[in-house]
Nucleic acid binder design. Sequence first.
DNA 1: GATTGACTATACATTATGTATATCTAATTT
DNA 2: AAATTAGATATACATAATGTATAGTCAATC
Lengths: 209, 209
Amino acid sequence: MPPRSYVSPARSAAAAETRERVIEAASRTLREGESIARFSLDTVAKAAGVTRLTVYNQFGSRRGLLEAVFDEIARHGGLHQLADAMAMADPCAALDRMVEIFCSFWSRDSAVGRLHDAMATDPEFAEAVSERNERRRRAVTALIDRIAGKTASPQARKDAVDLIFALTSYPTFASLSAGRSRDEVCRVVQGACHAALAPLINPSSPRNG
Amino acid sequence: MPPRSYVSPARSAAAAETRERVIEAASRTLREGESIARFSLDTVAKAAGVTRLTVYNQFGSRRGLLEAVFDEIARHGGLHQLADAMAMADPCAALDRMVEIFCSFWSRDSAVGRLHDAMATDPEFAEAVSERNERRRRAVTALIDRIAGKTASPQARKDAVDLIFALTSYPTFASLSAGRSRDEVCRVVQGACHAALAPLINPSSPRNG
DNA sequence: GATTGACTATACATTATGTATATCTAATTT
DNA sequence: AAATTAGATATACATAATGTATAGTCAATC
């Protein structure tokens, strides 16, 4: 006879609450630890007050947990403001706003730095994070298309997109953060992005002859 | 009685040869493996035809081996050309040349990428690599001091140095390398560096009011 | 009251770093 | 020639982490 299965509101709610508690414990562990090296499921499980096997039940693997933490941070990191920024009339002002939004995002939770570190040792996790970054690339591309003059070559557009994509990445943010506040980093990145735009608007002065 | 010790030319030569063989095997393993995750001393030892304990005898630890590989790559990576570049009369041309040199360096051996990945999981190794990068920072600082007009503020100089430091870093190179040849990346980075210089030469147009 | 879902307890397999001890071999010293 | 020494080896062990397997607990649902 086939097993009868059912959905339980109380059980699902409890499971969801457990899941949230584990994610919270994981991001706290990431924040407090001084490197991703010491981030173990054992530590997370103890911090969340559950068993290590519960973590596997909920997330399948270490990578699954890391992805869940990343998504949780992204959900509360203010990236939803990107839609408003993209709707602005002036694309240059929109770009400035985008830089602000991502500087806030990278600086909001130190766990994002640790998550980027985790990309180094787990190629599949790296791909998962890269896919999430593609949203930023699409936004940059859309703005460049609006900003660029009709005479701007496809190559110049591509260069500008990739350069601004790199300038708004986490590694650049982290590098510039040594000795700078979030707002100061934001200002420097905005300036660099403006400069990256110049050859698009005034193509009469190519940067290399 | 005190133990008598001696130095043996043949022994030292053999040891040095073994050391070289292990370093070669390690960098080959780094190049061929698809991530730093699978880089184990066991694999390296087998590839070099020695025992894992020999690796420990020579390098002390996994980190010691990675540092040795990094230094070996740096020794043959063309960074010695930096001295000639710094001696150029035109500091802007020197900067262009510096970008060239580092683009060559980052692209020369794919093992450097894996070594940068290793920084994520080993803070002390990260510090060791960062110290070696300080040479690049000093070179940039020296060039900026020569390029900047007398009216350029210390803040503007610092911003330019840190921005160019970030633009010539490995993460930026790796990011721009998607779909670009080494020379194309070099051209894009050079353009961005020129743009970063603008506020130093013509401070009448600050980038943020 | 029987069953099911989430969690637990315990054990095990695997892989990696790093340490300890004894042994082997060829180069060097006496 | 014999003793010694440096470098490499063989073997074993300690530790920690991921991931899997199996059985058991307990409350919610049928």
